[in-house]
Design a protein around this nucleic acid. Sequence first.
DNA 1: CTAGTGTCTGGACACATGTCCGGAAACTTG
DNA 2: CAAGTTTCCGGACATGTGTCCAGACACTAG
Lengths: 183, 183
Amino acid sequence: MTEPTRRRLSARQADTVRRLTEAAVREVRQSGYQHFSVRDVARSAGVAAATAYTYFASKDHLLAEVFWRRLRALPPVDTSEASARVRVTTVLRELALLVSDEPELAVGCTAALFGGEPDVRQLRLDIGKEIRERIAAAAGPGNPAAGVLELAYYGAMVQAGLGYTSYGRTADRLAEAAGLIVR
Amino acid sequence: MTEPTRRRLSARQADTVRRLTEAAVREVRQSGYQHFSVRDVARSAGVAAATAYTYFASKDHLLAEVFWRRLRALPPVDTSEASARVRVTTVLRELALLVSDEPELAVGCTAALFGGEPDVRQLRLDIGKEIRERIAAAAGPGNPAAGVLELAYYGAMVQAGLGYTSYGRTADRLAEAAGLIVR
DNA sequence: CTAGTGTCTGGACACATGTCCGGAAACTTG
DNA sequence: CAAGTTTCCGGACATGTGTCCAGACACTAG
């Protein structure tokens, strides 16, 4: 039960991991989170199951990594925009659209992040930190609304992921919330 | 793949189910969501595994039922209180404290509701409906803040369940949110 | 008490998941 | 090209999960 040695990946390894994460998206889209297995993803990526398991401990770990990569790929927060409300709405929309374009992927990522897999823990903390920072940057320094906006963002993700509301409406609900909250 | 026949439970069956849900709480507290199995719960309830599986299809189903039962056990919303803010804060606090008294239980319920198990689907919809109605009743008829309050509630649950903030602070964060939102 | 109905039991089962290992294959270096 | 290193492969394995069934047990009514 030791902490993993976080070695840097070689170019070849990075490529394998990339193929796995891309295959994961294909698979979860096609089969859904329930019928989604590391073995299937490995096959789809043209990689042996054992290889996939050397990089990812579970399907949850794999999906959490997908989310993390998409989050990291977002453009930096545009601080040149003057209106806090516009900045906030933009950032929230970007975050909401990260995975919500494909419902099954969103369900999968949400379930993965909540599943409590030990290997997802660190990733989860990193993701939370990044989201907090993006929202804080958009709200502006010292804006007390930032915390509530964060709540609203997660809440919107939940309602979408749980099927309480359609994904298409998620971003709109968030915009509405921002309107009520940001002064 | 047919819909289950929802027969009424006999007194004896109801007792078995009750013992199972209570044992589930004990087990998840002790072992955590990860190392938590229907078989262990059955043993702890003094029931054969096969019996447990006749009532619950999975550990997620079991935990979702626990949450649902606690939710149903809440007192009705106190509409005699005049201040909307007080009503809202009270209801949000009750909801937050449903499971958050015991972190592992909260993590388990959250994971269960998000896991996407087919047998949890209906339960999830019922739970969402009940929460929506309680918040709407507290906010008052036609209050546009109800939707955002709902977002905030789910958001708070997420932050607690994901370990982004301590459970003790959840209710306080919600109260703060209500203060910003309810006019 | 006896029969009859409903509920529970113990174990066998098919299946999936994550780990492990010896060796093959692909790179790197001299 | 040859030797050495890294990465990948295929498959065996242990473990866990949900299903099934034949019989045991507990209640109820006659």
